[in-house]
Amino acid sequence: MAKPIGTIISTSWNALEPIWQGGAELVQTGLPHQQLSPAWQILLLGDGSPTRHLQLLTGEPTEVDVIDMSPIGMDKDLAPSSLSVVPGPRVRRQVWLRTASGQRLAYATSWWEARHVDEYLENKSLPIWASLAKLRTELYRDVQGIYYGDSPVLAQAFGEAGPFWGRHYLFWHHGQPLTLIYEVFSPYLQRYLGKIS
């Protein structure tokens, strides 16, 4: 059957194939240090800005390569179930977070209400943290899930073997969900954070 005119066909995004995953309760309590070191837990389970943390760790500005901005309408997009609280229709944004010298450090996908995405991401090439800080937007980062898993696409893109650690969280602004973000970090960061476990 043909798709109706105006139907949005979404492209894929790079979710991990989980070997292990945990929800909000585990995010609150933390993991045993033999599973995930304290430094990595601060990065993954903390409510601070990952782009700011990456800049502090590497000593280089964190830059963004936007690889996708796709309207997905009301599609669930195989995203974490928290997507249901982000009003639609939605836009999905995919980026690489890298150092100014070009080292890829993380991959991120975010889902935004289409009618507000331009308001919050005026300059699409800036990290979300930089865009929202420029607007002085007050946010609450609600980390809801953590993942340990594989992705051949990310292994190739990072130039690092998996498995990888990732997470998803909601940004809340004035008590309303602003965006859902899914991030995966490169093992390259062990150069700064030490061994993962």
Rank of each mutant, 00 (worst) to 15 (best):
L45V: 06
S49P: 02
S49N: 13
T51H: 08
H53S: 09
L56A: 12
L56H: 13
T58M: 08
T58C: 05
T58Q: 08
G59A: 10
E63G: 04
D65L: 12
D65M: 11
M69G: 01
S70Y: 02
M74V: 00
M74T: 02
D75F: 01
K76G: 08
K76Y: 04
K76P: 11
L78M: 05
A79E: 12
S82V: 03
L83M: 09
V85T: 14
P89I: 06
R90T: 07
R90L: 07
G102C: 09
L105V: 07
A106R: 03
Y107M: 07
A108N: 04
W112Y: 13
W112M: 07
E113P: 04
A114E: 15
V117M: 12
L121N: 08
N123D: 15
K124W: 05
L126M: 13
A130N: 10
S131T: 01
S131Y: 03
L135M: 13
L135H: 03
T137H: 08
Y140T: 11
R141P: 03
D142I: 11
I146T: 12
Y148E: 07
G149L: 05
L154W: 07
A155K: 02
A157C: 03
G162K: 05
L170Y: 06
L170A: 07
G175M: 01
I181T: 13
